[in-house]
Design a protein around this nucleic acid. Structure first.
Length: 452
RNA sequence: GCCCCGGUAGUGUAGCGGCCUAUCAUGGGACCCUGUCACGGUUCCGACCUGGGUUCAAAUCCCAGCCGGGGCGCCA
């Protein structure tokens, strides 16, 4: 017996009068004495079966006692009817129980009144993913990765896969995971940064990687993970970081548009609002951002207490609260996406190009892209001169010897280049307004969660 | 690294010194129901994180532990 001839959500009027076999999970069984309604679900949707006991006793007795989420294959006649809200229903003639689900379920999957905590959901992720909300998030995630990769390939970016295991420690700025590698010290890569730069020396010109970031920080927030994924890109022969920002505009506009058009149902399920950018992303130089933030702090009358803070001055970081203050001003201007450019050099990673080409530079060619008040991307033009790069490594108190392989790549012809890293979970979280970034990755790793 | 907060049936909750052999919903068992689509009805089942302490009396107050959530910093 074929287990399936049609998806549960794929019934069209053309199928009325035909016999079809559906396979999926039992969503509900509504027994009404000697007749029962069974709703079956697969990833395409739902289908309702009507089973009358009269003349159909064995089938009735086989299906009616099934526990919710059991897996069955049911064959029946698809019939138009006004009695069912869908306009049709299926009269079963045969069924095969493929697997009976244990009871009770670890949580109430289909009851909108009961909002299960994120922890219970993650502990039972395979079940959680059957729900509309999580299923929608991961269909959109698929679309984000697919459309992003498509755009990058179409724009000359070659896909690469670099190593996540490294004998060299850190780019700085974060803690890394250390482990034993056949008796030697090794580290999990905090990002593909150094490797994708080496690919610029390799002459690949434009590369991207859908890669993993490992960060050993004990942060405890709804927007950080210890293991996350990202689009990482790097481009050669750029004139300035502006070329990188242009690529980001193209990429994100394409992704937002793809999701808005191809995942409209999923976006609606999540009650999200995915605004397709219609204009260029605003560029806000760091010093202008300070002015805007300080002005907002002075003039806003409806500033929430948690956003009240002292004025920012040159050199201060724009923290997560200040980012939200800036967003208030950007929102009024109609910008969901905006770059913060020309940061002070001092706090930026050693590979960021100083504005004036020396390590004493006041500003640098790094930028962040914020979306609705949260950092989505950081990037910039990189240093391509080995002497300047080595000075940058020293500026961070790191030892150039630890970066020998990386530095060597700059000695034999490194083109001017730049790039960025774009957190995929951040994209999803921000695009869909998810309250917790853990919802955007199948098996989140945070300070306390190591399983499943 | 710093700072808040919380742990009550499988799940989500109410109760915050005695009215608690703990509320409601969902769930599970039994029974009833031939048009449900958040099906309905009757009935039963199932929980106060652990250990100390205060008190005539602790789910409730205090202390410790364990577990968890969140904010800041850092960042994606």
């Amino acid at each position: 017996m074929t287990l399936r001839t049609l998806g549960c959500g794929e019934v069209k009027p053309a199928h009325y009068g035909t016999t079809q076999t559906f396979a999926g999970w039992v969503q509900t069984i509504r027994a009404k004495g000697t007749m029962a309604f069974l709703v079956l679900r697969d990833r395409t949707g739902l289908v309702q079966f009507v089973i009358k006991k009269e003349g159909n006793g064995p089938l009735f007795d086989q299906l009616t006692p099934l526990s919710p989420e059991s897996v069955v294959s049911i064959t029946g006649l698809v019939q138009a009817t006004e009695k069912a809200k869908a306009g049709f229903e299926v009269i079963p003639s045969a069924a095969k129980v493929l697997n009976v689900a244990a009871t009770p379920l670890p949580f109430a999957l289909w009851d909108d009144k009961i909002e299960t905590g994120i922890d219970t959901r993650l502990d039972n992720r395979y079940l959680d993913l059957r729900g509309n909300r999580s299923a929608a998030i991961f269909r959109i995630r698929h679309k984000v990765v697919e459309s992003g990769s498509t755009w990058l390939r179409a724009n000359g970016f070659q896909e690469i896969h670099t190593s996540n295991i490294s004998g060299a420690s850190s780019e700085g700025g974060t803690d890394v995971y250390k482990f034993d590698y056949f008796g030697r010290k090794a580290f999990l890569a905090q990002s593909p940064q150094l490797y994708k730069q080496m690919m610029m020396a390799a002459g690949m010109d434009r590369v991207f990687e859908v890669g993993w970031y490992f960060r050993a920080e004990k942060h405890n927030t709804v927007r950080h993970l210890n293991e996350s994924t990202a689009f990482d890109l790097e481009l050669s022969f750029i004139e300035s970081e502006e070329d990188v920002m242009k690529a980001i505009e193209g990429l994100l506009s394409h992704i937002w548009k793809a999701v808005a058009t191809d995942c409209a149902a999923e976006v609606a399920t999540l009650k999200a609002d995915v605004p397709v950018p219609t204009k260029g992303f605003r560029r806000v130089p760091y010093e202008e951002a300070l002015t805007i933030i300080n002005h907002e702090l002075d003039t806003a009358t409806d500033l929430p207490a948690e956003l009240k803070m002292p004025h920012l001055k040159f050199g201060d970081d724009i923290g997560s609260s200040a980012e939200k203050v800036l967003w208030r001003a950007m929102k009024r201007e109609g910008h969901d996406f905006y770059f913060i450019t020309k940061w002070p050099l001092a706090p930026k990673p050693f590979y960021v190009m100083p504005e004036d080409g020396t390590q004493d530079s006041r500003l640098c060619r790094g930028f962040d892209l914020d979306y609705r008040g949260v950092e989505l991307i950081s990037g910039g033009q990189r240093i391509h001169d080995p002497v300047l790069l080595e000075a940058g490594i020293k500026r961070w108190g790191l030892d150039p010897k630890d970066f020998k392989d990386y530095l060597d790549a700059f000695r034999y012809g490194m083109p001017p280049h730049g790039g960025c890293g774009i957190g995929i979970e951040r994209i999803l979280m921000m695009m869909l307004g998810l309250p917790n970034i853990r919802e955007a990755i199948l098996f989140p790793r945070d300070v306390t969660r190591l399983t499943p």
